[in-house]
């Protein structure tokens, strides 16, 4: 087994039963390696199986066939005990779509403490972890507040802090920005990037927003339960025809650069974010 891969997925398949008794496969024979400290975006349109993949990694769902290794341990082993599942969830945290459905307590800091409390950590250590996690997501001033009074983006940051306080190796974001406004989305994206960069947490981000995927180190495109593309954002966005075929579009700024290229204006450098794109265009204009 590859020593530096943190998550290793081998020939994973899962299907669900239809009302008429037939089976629809959601993931078809997927194999994937994810390195420790990687920032991976899993991209796909609705029904591509991307959320199912996330749920498999955290043992919320079990596959029909195939194996998943996390940190060298096979989690699809039928002899997994409840204790093993507990250990797994300690390592791999998950942030879901609806922030309201993840918060347990009526006070922000109590909610962040929920995970560490479940782990049976000493009270003073929990206190420290809660304070650290809240300051990491920039929500320290709301520690004594009520989640009900916060905005969607703020609630989602509390949910992230709740996972962060458990000190996981890896965090999965299952469309965690889908219910947020643009400002909230940007906040969460910045937080995710910070977690990856400053805390060295392996990030798996499930999304259907191109511009969010563009910020990752690596993109895996899922289409109809299969891996269609796998590579760095630049490599993925070069194949915009292929992306279009599976109902995805390149980020607007990448689209602009591609259009310019068709007209013979070559813009160099990475243009995944609007500001980087603007800089690149200015540089090209100055040169020309």
């Amino acid at each position: 087994m590859n020593s530096d891969s943190y998550i290793k997925i081998e020939n994973l398949s899962i299907s669900y039963e239809e009302d008429d008794g037939g089976r629809t496969s959601v993931l078809k024979n997927i194999s994937l390696n994810i390195k420790k400290g990687e920032y991976l975006a899993v991209l796909g349109h609705n029904g591509s199986g991307k959320s199912t993949l996330a749920k498999l990694l955290n043992m919320i769902l079990e596959p029909d066939s195939g194996k998943i290794y996390i940190d060298g341990k096979e989690i699809t082993d039928p002899s997994m005990t409840e204790e093993d599942v507990f250990e797994l969830r300690k390592k791999v945290g998950m942030v879901f779509q609806n922030p309201d459905n993840q918060l347990v307590a009526t006070i922000v800091e109590d909610d962040v403490a929920f995970g560490p409390e479940n782990l049976g950590i000493e009270p003073h250590e929990i206190r420290k972890r809660v304070d650290d996690a809240l300051s990491a997501v920039g929500m320290s001033e709301y520690a004594k507040g009520e989640p009900a009074r916060l905005s969607g983006g703020q609630k989602q940051r509390i949910a992230i802090a709740g996972i962060l306080a458990m000190k996981p190796d890896c965090m999965i974001f299952d469309e965690s920005t889908a219910m947020l406004d643009p400002l909230g989305r940007r906040d969460i994206m910045d937080t995710i990037e910070m977690l990856n960069r400053e805390h060295g947490i392996t990030i798996i981000m499930i999304t259907h927003y191109m511009d969010e995927a563009a910020r990752a180190n690596r993109i895996v495109v899922l289409d109809d339960g299969e891996i269609l593309m796998d590579g760095a954002p630049t490599q993925i966005f070069e194949q915009h025809e292929k992306l279009k075929e599976c109902g995805l579009d390149v980020p607007q700024c990448v689209g602009l650069v591609n259009l310019l290229k068709e007209r013979g204006i070559i813009i160099k450098g990475e243009c995944h974010t609007p500001s980087a794109c603007a800089d690149a265009i200015v540089a090209a204009l100055n040169k020309g």
Partner: peptide, 14 residues
């Protein structure tokens, strides 16, 4: 997913 499994083995912050 946040490792909740009832009151057993749970500690409290406060």
């Amino acid at each position: 997913c946040r490792c909740y499994r009832g009151g057993e083995g749970r500690t409290r912050m406060k």
